[in-house]
Design a protein around this nucleic acid. Structure first.
Length: 471
DNA sequence: ATCGGCTCGCGCAA
DNA sequence: TGCGCGAAGCCGAT
């Protein structure tokens, strides 16, 4: 039994016991481990003494998604297919918009279970399915440690207001997921449930899908539940020690690198948090620091997209921030770059170019550099509203962990969201927190970072990054 | 090296 | 109503 606080019935429709199977419409939690929606779907199937069908909709041209995103996701679907079949359920991948695939597969379902998502169009898909099908649709929270409304029912001003609410609730919710055994196994490829794609061959499927082709598969990240577990093992074995300090050192790369896996549901934050909390490595402060990032700040981003309808727009920023940025919209910009110059890392700033190239080459960027990177886009773009749009565009195009709640929260932070005003009032930034290259130089050996990215570039592409300072 | 000031608004004590 | 203080800031004074 899953926690009732994770379960929500999306419509008042009945269960139809005459139908042959229970459907788990899987979209968000692309894993078996620690998947509460799967556990709940198995419970339902067992109650009704029916087999379980797990259905996934694979659509062309998911908004802003590139070949890089699709390749990573398809790696995960390969893992998922074998894991689901091992449980004795049928895994069906249909070609189409997920909401339509769900409605199609629900025609023969006694009831539908799905996993919860936190972006406008994904919430809309679930509402559509709940209205369009004739049986009960239940949604299960699988993304967060503390379910959204348990933590807070309103838009939080910042981490400091959400933190105590999360802390009060997390012990109760930071519990392992017991996966029940499926009682009625189904024969693979049962009647009318053929997949449109054979996801055991990700690269073959990738060729058949329509998407933005300019951004290729990451040469350093393989998607899927198995790869995610390996990253977590490696992090606990060699990265927790001194994490509290080391996480902000760009050249050290002391990161779990699990954010892409969280984005595709290849790993559960509960799995990550319980493993790290009980790890016999690192100091208490190191483990606390990791859990703060994973739970408080990640869940703040989900609070932001859930309670702020304009989460992806300049108009969604706090009033003081919009006002201050607008007051400085006409200030002279010393440097102005086009999207293309930014995307290819051709600015005057070698630190920024290195960060951009880390992102372009790998699909990932060091956490601290993400802040500096975004602040400079604000500084080098003619208008703050355009800067916000450009930052989001680059973020979603190149990051493997783009296109999710954290993306919108992180980008909004650059422009003052979840932050406070900082004097003195400056050109362009107004009261928005300012960052500059002197800060990087003061705090870190930032040249080490530039050299590190340049070495990586040589290894991956045969040539180094452009830089006006070093090379 | 460390500290206060810069600035706004929430949460809590009073 | 007043007061403390905050997701990563910078800068100048000590």
């Amino acid at each position: 039994m899953i926690s009732p606080s994770r379960l929500r019935t999306l419509n008042g429709k009945p269960v139809d016991s005459s139908k042959p199977y229970v459907l788990y419409w899987l979209q968000q939690a692309q894993r078996v481990g620690f998947n509460q929606a799967l556990a709940h779907a198995i419970d339902r199937a067992n109650e009704l003494k029916k087999p379980l069908v797990v259905g996934f909709g694979l659509m062309d041209d998911y908004p802003e998604a590139t070949e890089r995103h699709y390749a990573f996701m398809l790696d995960g679907l390969r893992d998922l297919k074998s894991a689901i079949e091992k449980l004795g359920a049928t895994f069906v991948v249909k070609h189409g918009v997920p909401k339509d695939v769900a409605v199609l597969l629900a025609k023969d379902a006694a009831c539908v279970v799905t996993d919860r998502a936190y972006l406008r169009h994904l919430v809309g898909w679930r509402e559509h399915v709940a209205n369009a099908v004739s049986v009960r649709v239940e949604q299960v929270e699988t993304e967060l440690v503390v379910p959204l409304e348990v933590a807070s029912t309103k838009s939080e001003i910042g981490a400091r207001t959400l933190r105590p609410k999360i802390h009060r609730a997390w012990a109760e919710h930071l519990v392992p997921v017991e996966m029940p055994k499926l009682a009625v196994k189904s024969a693979p490829g049962a009647k009318g449930l053929q997949s449109d794609f054979d996801v055991s061959d990700p690269d073959a499927v990738l060729k058949k899908i329509s998407c933005i082709r300019e951004v290729k598969r990451s040469p350093v990240f393989t998607g899927g539940e198995r790869a995610a577990q390996k990253h977590l093992d490696d992090f606990i074995a060699s990265q927790i020690d001194d994490y509290a300090k080391g996480r902000n050192e760009p050249a050290r790369g002391q990161s779990s690198t699990l954010s892409p896996y969280l984005q595709y549901g290849h790993i559960s934050p509960i799995d990550m948090a319980t493993r790290v909390v009980s790890a016999k490595r690192g100091a208490q402060a190191d483990r606390d620091s990791f859990v703060e990032e994973l739970i408080v700040r990640r869940e703040l981003a989900h609070n932001f997209t859930s309670y702020n309808a304009k989460y992806d727009r300049f108009a969604g920023l706090p009033e003081w921030a919009q006002k201050s940025l607008r007051a400085h919209a006409m200030d002279k910009r010393q440097y102005v770059y086009t999207r293309d110059e930014l995307a290819t890392g051709q600015t005057h700033d070698s630190y920024w170019n290195a960060a951009q190239m880390e992102m372009v080459l790998t699909g990932f960027m060091h956490n601290y550099m993400r802040m500096y990177w975004g602040k400079k886009i604000l500084e080098w773009t003619p208008d703050p509203e355009e800067a916000h749009a450009t930052t989001l565009w680059l973020n979603n195009r190149f990051f493997l962990d783009g296109l999710n709640a954290n993306s919108y929260g992180n980008v909004a932070w650059i422009y003052g969201q979840h932050d406070r005003p900082w004097g003195p009032e400056r050109p362009i930034f107004g009261l928005i927190r300012y960052m500059n290259a002197a800060g990087l130089e003061r705090k870190f050996d930032i040249q080490d970072y530039v050299v590190k990215v340049d070495d990586l570039s040589r290894e991956l592409t045969g040539s180094g990054i452009r830089s006006n300072v070093l090379f």
